[in-house]
Design a protein around this nucleic acid. Sequence first.
DNA 1: AAGGCTCTTTGGATCGTTCCAATTTCAGCG
DNA 2: CGCTGAAATTGGAACGATCCAAAGAGCCTT
Lengths: 351, 351
Amino acid sequence: MVRDVTRRPTILDVAARAGVSKSTVSLVLQGSDQVRPETRDAVRTAMVEIGYVYNRAAANLRSASVGLVGLVINDLRNPFFTQFATTLQMTLAARGYATVIANSDEDPALQARLVGSMIEHGVAGLVISPAYGSAGATFDQLARTGLPVLQVLRKTDPRTDLFPFASFDYAAGSVAAARHLLERGARRIAFVGGLPGRAITQQRQSGWRTVMAEHGLDTVALEGKPTRAFGMQVAGTLHARHPEIDAAICFNDLVALGLIAGFARAGRQVGTDFRVVGFDDIEEAAQSWPQLSSVACDIDRFARDTAARLLDWMVDARRPAPEILMPVALVTRDSSIAPCPCAASHPTRIQ
Amino acid sequence: MVRDVTRRPTILDVAARAGVSKSTVSLVLQGSDQVRPETRDAVRTAMVEIGYVYNRAAANLRSASVGLVGLVINDLRNPFFTQFATTLQMTLAARGYATVIANSDEDPALQARLVGSMIEHGVAGLVISPAYGSAGATFDQLARTGLPVLQVLRKTDPRTDLFPFASFDYAAGSVAAARHLLERGARRIAFVGGLPGRAITQQRQSGWRTVMAEHGLDTVALEGKPTRAFGMQVAGTLHARHPEIDAAICFNDLVALGLIAGFARAGRQVGTDFRVVGFDDIEEAAQSWPQLSSVACDIDRFARDTAARLLDWMVDARRPAPEILMPVALVTRDSSIAPCPCAASHPTRIQ
DNA sequence: AAGGCTCTTTGGATCGTTCCAATTTCAGCG
DNA sequence: CGCTGAAATTGGAACGATCCAAAGAGCCTT
């Protein structure tokens, strides 16, 4: 009886070719050291010869470990999240895990479907930067599966014992930014961007509020979407209606870059009569002009740490700490310190 | 005999609970219309009651259709590719497919491993923007699997019958950009950015070369990495050594924005004495200052088309056309037309 | 030569679904 | 009431790997 040639070869075909049993082939696949080297090589050769491809679905059915990790992000178009996703995926790939990446686009219903789909695909763990909104059912479902799940950058479910949370110490960054601007002579510092009522907006504002209160200074917060467009819009408002304001801490670098672009359009030069500090220190911050001061969140390190914590949990069943805040560093550049548009830039990293 | 409570429930448990056979449960799962509505509802209720989750691995083992699509991208950090990946993933999600996204980081060896991993996971189709370099073995492997594979934005394997290719009509965009700059009075138009020898660089240059030749004008190409940093660097070079050059077509918007930032640092105003057109029309182009003229590649539409073509192939076995070039449109903004820095901008879409 | 020990190898059961052919159910009809 | 055909349901055989207990091979000891 001849085997159907159009069928994908299985370990049985490999076994027949190599003259061993399927169990031996399976052992070779798993890299077991209790197979004689000659046998192992013969099996490997047979695999190559007949073009065998491993069938993970079949393996998974029996052993329930999949080598697949889910990543759900609320806004994958934001370069900050893109960077996180990319580094996380590559770190996991280096450890032999494939990553299913999905964008919830800030939609809890879509997020629920995506998480459901990932559970079905049998992911071994999940990293989620959750969309805002009611996701109780989604997290309840995850709790029932007992899957390792990490909340990152945002915490929408308070059960950090079930869903450990990690983010950056934004409040400390906010303090550093405010102190720095005061030192450079600014007095009326506005906070620009960030959606009202959200935890992350409050965190990024909190240090600034504290420092301003310490110095008995008024605070103006112009809240809005964390986008370049909003930054540009605010530039117009500030220029026309709040000429007294001489500095801004922006919710993120996109807002800050929009603000700078808006000021430039109005013929006003950021860095001299107006100082700006952003959040995130995205790659572009060092390449814009003027170069943008920013509270640097080392997102690559954060992504690698996240991968490590997830792997610890998945592989060694070591549940990570319920809550971690990674330190941030203020990087000062032209947008907050330059005395003159033509001066060369020497970024300084403090704290 | 009582079932182990720690075990995940299977369709057998559902069947027992609903008082039907496993086959009926399977039919319900597949949304078959040959199940009586009452039975269907009873099964659905049972599923919810015992917290059943579908095991895709098992289903896949039998039926070999996985609902999983692979996406391999050479540079996921590039906003152009990010946008593509995000829209593709969301379009496929709407059709019930999950997407495994991976970044090859321009490394053919890593790319080979990623593709291998995706095949193992049993993806039903693959979209790849391949890394440059020797990937013959990878594509041979794909050819052997008979999987639907689309090459997008880059073609490293010439067998477009096996791996249909789709991209944008960059050459036409290049013609439009060059004509436009000449109309606005520019004469010495440089081409900036793009790695030497690559097909995409040649395509984006070709129209410009043709038009310049038609007008008997010299061409200067400053080739280099498609990054903001390279654009900034070139700004210095042009300013210092090529003051006669009065316009540039940039390989992409990142280079163009870097170039503009570099000119701004040198105190030179783009849009008046120097004109710039980029490629890709990324979101930022409309929000920078001056706003950037760009050859718009409708990446969202491209992503949706790609998803549709892949689904046609996977679901209906309709193999798509071997080669498609999607038309592009030149969007003119301040960086190539504004007579004065303070003028309001009125973007115009031509062609 | 037989027994004991370690190192390799093996067959059969198993995982949770889908597929298929066969069986049961049931309404309509003579 | 029995027959018929369509609709609904069912049991058993896959799918391709892993797991496990057990068997085989080889070597050393007595």
